[in-house]
Structures are given as structure tokens and as C-alpha cells.
Design a binder for these strands. Structure first.
Lengths: 222, 222
DNA sequence: CTATCATTAGAACGAACGTTCGAACGATGG
DNA sequence: CCATCGTTCGAACGTTCGTTCTAATGATAG
């Protein structure tokens, strides 16, 4: 079993256990990092356990000390990645109250994390639905939470600006714009997260923003 | 070899060959259809040749009469799908001259085909880059062609409306909005292609449309 | 030093993989 | 009728897969 027991221990034993915990977690983190890159390059099914062990410099059998199965490894990656991006987002939103700026912060947070952790986010986007019942449910739950945050931001904006659009279509279009970048992003051409967040924020906010609920349509009907 | 020889033949022989050609092509098409669904459900690597043979009701060995390898099978699916969507698009664009309506036609064409061939389009979007050198280059070429059409539509719109935005970011954002729907589309909630094309068209066109090149920015700087 | 326990690895497991082989099938032409 | 040829299949190929077994490490506590 992993060193996660919480029974009372002598101080020296506790210190040992602590350093042991650190060592265990650090090794696991190291494996997760390398596995993320391999999954990103070859896909979940395409990456073999032997690929993963080679990448992390640990023997095939040794890996199984840190997780029960290849599926759990993918789960740990997805859970950690999603957890981190949500935590970072909440931290940022605390300091902003203006509805538009909150949406812009959401976009920037997503893109910044996406570009700083391209491999992990590609795995998150691309290896979706590969996890079965137990693991899948857990990840889907975190994903719904993240989705709900975005919906709330848009609903609030919609209310204060008295706008009229389909929140669902808008949110999912926004996610599409942002998540698709793993297929095309090139640092040379496309600049950093701040620039992209500005451009996508402009497109998206103008897109949902210029039609008041008065009913005016600015598109010529075909 | 496949019945694609073009040497001179007696009329009866030619008729036989023709019906044979039909039979071959029809069987191949049938396999491609079923394979598309399986690839869609399980992914390219996750779907085994045995899965594919079971789905199309043909023996494992029998499949290899119609293609050289599993990779070529994926290639045939991608090539056919892309070819069809481009052909349909060109046909539609011929009849439209207004720059905005041409963009709207592009969006509608993409979404309509996407929703009518969800499995194929998911495979196209999701199993990208799985093809190696030879096959991959061919698909990438068709993809660039499709991308270029969209770029031209936007450039034309930009010129006639005297707008100022990054064409690249705009095009790729639009593709993101549209291609992402395979992860969330639900006929019950989201309506048909026409409705979605209208909504996404509104968001996108207003998004790129309301900022003239005079330099006005409608977003409060943070 | 000895006992203990987390950690690591070599070797092997049965299962599943993509592909191939040779034979059989069925329709059609002579 | 037989010969031909596109079509189909059962069986098997060698390889690789995810996982497990067992034993050897290395560090720490007593």
C-alpha cells in the first residue's frame, strides 16, 4: 500500500514516514509528468506501459508500485490537471468583480494554463471518455464543476448587460475556441496567452455582446 | 489487385467488370461506414481489426481484400469525408456572392455535414495525426485546402467591410467553435444545423465585425 | 548487526494485436 | 462441363500488450 496511513506514530517514525511520503509523491509526480508527455505524443491507447517506463527511467514492473493500472495513471493526470486549473481560476476570480473582466479572466486563465501545460491539456481534451465508469465519473464531475463556473460567469454578464443569447451555445462555443488551440498553436506565430486571450475575448465578447434583448438582428436574413 | 484496370475489353467483359467494380466499391463503402462508427466509439488505436470485422459482418481476413492495412482504412475514411465536404461546399459557394452570406454558408455547410455524419467527422477531428508520412501528407493537403477556402472567405469579408482582426486567430477560433461540437452536441437540446449555424454565425460575425479599423476598442482595458 | 519495509527490476504470464497463408466458394465466359 | 477469377474464410503467424510473480535492493529502526 502507499504510505498514506494516518495512525499515531513516534516523532522519529513520523519524520521518516513524512520523508517517505515526500519521496513517494515526488516519484509519482515525476512519472506523471513524463507519462503526460508520452500520452500527448502517442495517445492513451497508442502509448504502451513500456513507452511510459522508458520515458520515466523506471522499470516496467517498478511503475506498478505507484498506481494500480494504466487507466489509473491517466486518471491521476486528468484529476491533477483539472484540479490545478480550477484552483488557479478561483484564486483569480476572487479579486475581480466586473462581469466582463471576470469572463476575460476566465479566458486568460484557461489559455495561460493551456499553453503552459500543453501536453497535459491535450491529454485532458483528447483522451476524454477513455476512462471507464469509476474513474470517468470522477473526472466528469470535476469537468461539470468547471463548466458550471463558466455558465455562471456568462449568466451574470447576460443579466447586468441585459443581453439575449443561448448561454449553452455560447459557453460551448467558447470552450471550442479555446480547447481547439492544441491542434494549431505555434508560439512563433500566435504569441503568448495574454495576446490570444485578448483576441479571443474580443471575438467572443463582441459576439455575444452587441445584440440587446430588444430583438434587433444585425445579420441579413438569407 | 482491385478491379481498376482500364484496358480495352469486350462489351460483355466490360459489363461484368463494371458490375464487379460496383460490387467491390459498394462492399468497400459498407466496410468504411461500419468502420467509421467503430473508430468513432473506440478510437483508432482502441478499435481492433476484429472489432471492425465483426461490425461489418465480414471475416477478419476477408477485410484485407479491400485495403492493405488498418492505417489505409483510416486514410480512406478521412479522404472520402474531407472530399465530400469540400465538394458540397464548392457547390454551395458557387451560388452566393455576398461576403457575409458566403461565410454563413461555410458555417452552415460545415455544421450540417458535421451533424449528418457525426461519426465520420469525429474520426476526422479526433484521429488526426494518427496517419504516418505517406497517408498523413495526403490528408494534410486536403485539410490545408479546406482551411485556405475559409481564410479567403474571411479575407474578402475583411476587405469589403474594412475590418481589422487577425485572420488566423479568427479562422482557427471558428474551426474550434464548430469542431468542438462533437464533444457536446445533443439533438434534443441543441436543435438542427441551421439553428446552430445561425447562433454560431451570429457570435462569430459580430465578434469579428464590430471593430472597424479606425482603431476603436469596445473592451475596457484591464 | 539484524530485522523491517518501502522500493525496484528481470522474467514471464496469458491475452490480444495486425497481418498473412492457402484453401474453398460462387458466379461468369467459353 | 470445366476453367477462371474475384471474393471469402479458418487457422495460424510472430509480436506486443497490460499485468504479475518473485527476488533482490536500499534505507532506516532497534
Amino acid at each position: 500500500m502507499a504510505s498514506t496511513s494516518t495512525t499515531a506514530l513516534s516523532s522519529s517514525r513520523r519524520a521518516a514516514e513524512l520523508s517517505s511520503e515526500n519521496r513517494f509523491d515526488q516519484q509519482l509526480a515525476r512519472i506523471l509528468e513524463h507519462a503526460t508527455d508520452v500520452f500527448c505524443e502517442k495517445g492513451y491507447e497508442g502509448a504502451s506501459m513500456r513507452d511510459l517506463s522508458r520515458a520515466s527511467g523506471m522499470s516496467l514492473a517498478g511503475m506498478y508500485h505507484y498506481f494500480r493500472s494504466k487507466e489509473e495513471l491517466l486518471f491521476l493526470i486528468q484529476k491533477h490537471t483539472f484540479g490545478t486549473i480550477i484552483e488557479q481560476l478561483r484564486h483569480r476570480l476572487e479579486k475581480i468583480s466586473d462581469p466582463e473582466q471576470r469572463i476575460r479572466a476566465f479566458i486568460f486563465n484557461h489559455l495561460e494554463y493551456f499553453l503552459a501545460n500543453q501536453s497535459a491539456m491535450k491529454v485532458l481534451s483528447h483522451e476524454d471518455e477513455k476512462l471507464s465508469n469509476h474513474y470517468g465519473a470522477a473526472v466528469r464531475s470535476v469537468k461539470r464543476e468547471y463548466y458550471a463556473i463558466c455558465v455562471n460567469l456568462l449568466e451574470q454578464y447576460k443579466r447586468t448587460e441585459k443581453l439575449d443569447f443561448s448561454t449553452r451555445t455560447a459557453v460551448l462555443s467558447l470552450f471550442g475556441m479555446m480547447n481547439w488551440i492544441y491542434t494549431w498553436y505555434n508560439p512563433r506565430q500566435d504569441g503568448n496567452a495574454r495576446k490570444l486571450a485578448q483576441e479571443m475575448g474580443d471575438i467572443f465578447l463582441r459576439g455575444i455582446g452587441s445584440s440587446r434583448s430588444s430583438g434587433k438582428k444585425n445579420s441579413r436574413v438569407q
